[in-house]
């Protein structure tokens, strides 16, 4: 429905976990539990996203056109292993980049205020 014509800045600022999911998916397609695992070990702290919260975010992100379901290449035949994979849409990538830009600006301001340790020479 023409979501890709939207201004990505409409959705900014993103919730931290949404931004994290976008960053994870920017590196490649993952299924739900894969996202949870990646979130846990993500550089810069990492967070525990619970399954319920994750799937609500995913639903919202799909509705906003940030991500889409991806048909995996080699689908397992075991029904318990069958699950959806998610990937970034071009619009989602735009939004993530926009949010990253915003956060970079914030970080620069924090550095000016000497809130970032060991960043003098940067």
């Amino acid at each position: 429905m023409g979501k890709s014509d939207r201004d990505p800045r409409e959705l900014i600022p993103l919730k931290p976990d949404v931004f994290l999911i976008l960053s994870i998916l920017a590196r490649g397609v993952r299924h739900g539990y894969g996202i949870m695992q990646a979130a846990h070990t993500w550089p810069g702290g990492g967070m525990e996203i619970q399954a319920g919260a994750l799937y609500r975010r995913l639903k919202w992100m799909m509705a906003e056109g940030l991500i889409q379901e991806v048909r995996p290449v080699n689908r397992s035949e075991d029904p318990s292993e069958r699950k959806r994979d998610y990937g970034l849409t071009p619009f989602g990538r735009l939004v993530a980049r926009e949010e990253a830009k915003r956060m970079a600006g914030l970080l620069a301001a924090a550095r000016d205020a000497e809130l970032v340790p060991g960043a003098e020479g940067a």
Partner: peptide, 24 residues
């Protein structure tokens, strides 16, 4: 506890949620 989600939501991704929880 999953039943606190609306039925439509559960029909869609309920199994995925359970699976992700189980793996976690």
């Amino acid at each position: 506890f999953l039943r606190s989600f609306p039925k439509a939501f559960r029909d869609q991704v309920g199994e995925d949620i359970s699976l992700a929880f189980k793996q976690g």
